[in-house]
């Protein structure tokens, strides 16, 4: 009997020891960057960096910074993120917080809501988007790490509807939707590797989903998630008497891009925005540029002069951002 008891203690001890060791490694790598780097090297998780997640956290912190007197916020996708970088320093009243496709319109809603809450002088909101952002969903590869983790870490997750949070918990597990896990994902490479891969494994294995696509989406339609949060953004701006502009990303002058733009018109019509001034403004704001202006067909070549020219032309075409200084 005593022998049996000792064996049970051994097994329980082993499990407890494993958990403790994992826990200690997780905590140390989360809070100590040099050790994180060493552990990342040893565990082959160096490439599991959280640049995007950390950038989203920073953007929300900037939004919540009341020491700055911002009155205009520009949110949007990755095209927007890079396009306005060069005009940022000359426009202290503008806050440019472009993000990425997996951040979805839901993430942008949180940015806008926080901005309005923290800046009483808020007067204008700009959304600079492309077709892929409207189609985006809470996907396996990016939804957790680029949307949920930053919102949990900045404690702005509750800006989202309960339904959205429940859906995310269902998708990524309730445990991973807690603050300690979000912190680990955003700061510890090895934890990030294990957690993100376990999410992938769960989706492939238990749910039998095809997760090979880098970005999952609802092609040819504004995803229900984005429709819901676009509606909320419009309502919020109207309630607070803030002007909302939705502007199109600059696109390459190709047949594919033109097809995409006409598809977008349909997407907005199908989502109930056929008479909406926002949809009209969005579709009419599109600017076409030669293919060589783009590095990958979507993102503008990173040259300050070119970016400034495009922003100027965007400004002229939409007759918005009147006080934006472009040097």
């Amino acid at each position: 009997m005593k022998k049996k008891k000792n064996k049970i203690i051994c097994v329980v001890g082993f499990i407890a020891l494993s958990i403790v060791i994992f826990g200690v490694v997780a905590v140390i790598t989360t809070y100590n960057e040099p050790i994180n780097q060493v552990v990342a090297k040893v565990t082959l998780s160096e490439e599991y960096t959280a640049e995007e997640g950390q950038a989203r956290v920073e953007s929300i912190k900037r939004i919540q910074d009341t020491s700055k007197d911002y009155s205009v916020i520009v949110v949007g996708d990755s095209v927007c993120q890079y396009l306005f970088e060069s005009v940022e320093e000359d426009n202290p009243s503008y806050l440019f917080v472009g993000s990425s496709r997996p951040f979805t319109i839901a993430g942008q809603y949180v940015q806008i809501k926080e901005f309005i809450d923290y800046h009483p002088n808020a007067r204008e909101v700009y959304m600079v988007e492309g077709i892929s952002t409207w189609e985006s969903i809470l996907d396996t590869q990016g939804g957790y790490q680029q949307l949920m983790v930053p919102l949990i870490e900045t404690e702005t997750i509750n800006d989202l509807d309960e339904e959205t949070i429940d859906y995310a918990k269902h998708n990524y597990s309730s445990l991973y939707m807690t603050y300690p896990f979000a912190k680990m994902v955003n700061h510890s490479n090895v934890c990030r590797k294990l957690i993100l891969n376990s999410i992938m494994f769960y989706h492939q294995d238990i749910r039998g989903e095809d997760t090979s696509a880098l970005f999952e989406s609802t092609p040819g339609e504004i995803s229900p998630l984005n429709q819901h949060y676009l509606k909320k953004i419009i309502q919020l701006c109207e309630e607070k008497n803030i002007t909302l502009h939705i502007i199109h990303d600059p696109v390459s002058n190709t047949e594919q891009s033109k097809e995409d733009v006409s598809k977008e018109r349909e997407m907005f019509d199908n989502a109930g925005y056929s008479d909406s001034k926002y949809a009209d403004e969005y579709i009419n704001s599109v600017l076409y540029y030669p293919e060589e202006y783009f590095v990958d067909g979507t993102h503008i070549v990173r040259e300050r002069e070119l970016e400034n020219t495009i922003v100027q032309q965007m400004k002229d075409k939409t007759r918005t951002m009147n006080d934006l200084v472009i040097k």
């Binding site: 565990t43 990755s78 294990l194 997760t211 993102h299």
Partner: peptide, 16 residues
Amino acid sequence: IYGQYAIEFDASAFIY
């Protein structure tokens, strides 16, 4: 840590 499970998460998913 070193085990490779089916299709791995794309560590460099967001190349931009």
